[in-house]
């Protein structure tokens, strides 16, 4: 596909350049940490948008894919001594494999059954992680996960300078892939399937196979993000599978607007800074989840297409494009 040098591509390129320059302006470790977390969440939220928004699969197990990435990477890196870079990739692959498992019942089911099965699936993974505490650390969590290095460079140095770029790079690549997928023939076919399943089937779109692919692709990015999450934080807890994490990421998808990819990315940045900012105040650590819950409800009730729909028309359309 030829790259069109219109205002839109230039704008995106400018945003990437700004992203690349941030660490030179922002020297503070904590603020850089917030950016890194936001990039991770952005990947999870935008990949969820592929299955929930574009394909219209009522998938509520996406955060479990993220969690599987976390544990698959953490365990292979820590116990098997796999190189953390490879372990991160393995996290993505493991999440995709889990997606195949979930897809077995999900591609054949409708509406509410999909909601219930995917919820049940995430609880299953949670139960396995908690019950196999000898390996996973159980409710105590996984600790001392080895972290990445490159040519002997320790990423913890220079105020997380290196982590920032890895996270940013991962996000840019993931978003580019997701956008490309969403706008490809494949993306069109899953949207057709979402809007009118019977029509899509009559046009020869293999519904079950497309659903399977969507889940596998979106799970890969979630798993990859999970892998980076654990090598970056070096700890993991079953909390990643909780309803709270699900609602946090879900709020990013909704606030940003579904079927946009960019929307959830922007919402992830904003919500991470707001919610982590609140976490610094005494007693508000739990309050931020309340804020996220309220934000979700307000957006669903008043702005069902996400905050982008509240922007001036021209902008809103571009965001929804």
């Amino acid at each position: 596909m030829p790259v069109k040098l219109d205002a839109r591509s230039l704008g995106l390129a400018a945003l990437v350049v700004v992203g690349l320059l941030v660490p030179f302006v922002v020297q503070d470790t904590y603020v850089r940490h917030l950016f890194i977390m936001a990039f991770i969440y952005a990947v999870v939220a935008s990949s969820w948008d592929l299955s929930l928004g574009y394909a219209g699969i009522f998938n509520f197990g996406h955060v479990a894919f993220f969690g599987i990435g976390v544990y698959a990477t953490g365990l292979t890196a820590k116990l098997l001594g796999l190189d953390p870079w490879l372990a991160m990739m393995f996290g993505g692959v493991a999440a995709s494999a889990a997606a195949v498992l979930v897809a077995l019942p999900v591609v054949r089911l409708q509406g509410v059954y999909v909601v219930l099965v995917t919820f049940a699936f995430s609880q299953l993974v949670l139960q396995v992680v908690i019950s196999q505490s000898a390996v996973t650390g159980g409710t105590q969590g996984l600790i001392r996960v080895p972290t990445i290095e490159l040519f002997g460079y320790n990423f913890l140095r220079d105020f997380k300078f290196g982590y920032y770029y890895v996270a940013f790079g991962m996000m840019v690549v993931a978003v580019a892939c997701l956008r490309w997928l969403a706008r490809s023939d494949f993306g069109l076919s899953i949207m057709a399937m979402r809007d009118n399943e019977d029509y899509a089937a009559s046009r020869g779109i293999p519904i079950a196979l497309q659903r399977l692919k969507v889940l596998v692709f979106s799970a890969f990015f979630a798993g990859l993000a999970g892998g980076f999450f654990v090598v970056y934080l070096r700890v993991a807890s079953p909390e990643v599978f909780s309803f709270s994490t699900t609602s946090l990421i879900l709020s990013m998808v909704l606030v940003g607007g579904t079927s946009t990819i960019y929307g959830p990315v922007i919402a992830a940045l904003v919500l991470t800074f707001v919610s982590e900012g609140l976490a610094n105040f005494e007693g508000l650590a739990e309050g931020r989840f309340i804020l996220v819950a309220v934000a979700m409800i307000v957006v669903l009730v008043f702005l069902p297409k996400g905050l982008a729909s509240a922007l001036p028309k021209r902008w809103g359309q571009r965001a929804a494009e």
């Binding site: 009522f58 699900t246 709020s251 739990e286 819950a293 979700m296 669903l300 009730v301 069902p304």
Partner: peptide, 22 residues
């Protein structure tokens, strides 16, 4: 409605759970 209310009631659940904790 089904999908949306799954999300709104999930939010209500978090609201009550975290509110109880506070």
């Amino acid at each position: 409605i089904l999908l949306i209310t799954v999300m709104t009631t999930l939010a209500a659940m978090i609201f009550i759970e975290k509110g109880s904790q506070l």
